[in-house]
Amino acid sequence: MSLVTADNLSKAYAKGELKVEALKNLNFEIEPASFVSFVGPSGSGKTTLLNLIGCLDKPTSGVLTVDDTDVSGLNTRMAAAFRGRKIGFIFQDFNLIPVLTVYENVGYPLLMVRNTPSPERKRRILTLLEAVGMAEKKNKYPDQISGGQKQRVAVARALVTNPKLVLADEPTANLDHKTAYMVIDIMKKMKNELGTTFIFSTHDQKIVGEAEIIYPLEDGELTKGRG
């Protein structure tokens, strides 16, 4: 049973009087516990596709199913609740909350989204921080750690609710090569340990090689998939 299924998925924007087709009739299936990358140049539709899978946007046509739920019909509140339950996010700019410590940033989804009780929350946060190698920095604020460390914290935050799917939009774009590989390694490790599906977008050809399945995107169309 696929975790994500796209059936003739299209997304068009109106830009003034011009209609821009960002995604055109995409069809794909992503299995649970896979490590998938959408690859393509800037403007190819990677972010738009991740936004659709992440229930941040709605398709113009077609059907998109995530964990057996047709997400194209969810309203704002239902979509937020769905994301909180099923999806973790890793952002290109890390997007940690500056007034919270590393520990509090990782715990934020458990506290504000899931209302997880304190002992369970503490256990999950520390486990994830250990896994990404950031336990020692748990009391630091985001402006006190490096970019690579921030992204490791972001990975921990994305996984702390034990989601079925983690979406990462250009997670290594703001990192140097060595750090980028380290972050990808951590994501892979977490996928193997927790069985979480990772879908990330990148335009970096070297990072692409780390994915198990690659979907190349060009002008909103999938050119061919590689396993």
Partner: peptide, 16 residues
């Protein structure tokens, strides 16, 4: 704004 976008993306409900 970006921070609001982040917390909304990770599932914080509008009421919160």
């Amino acid at each position: 704004i970006r921070e609001i976008g982040t917390i909304a993306a990770i599932g914080t409900l509008p009421g919160k």
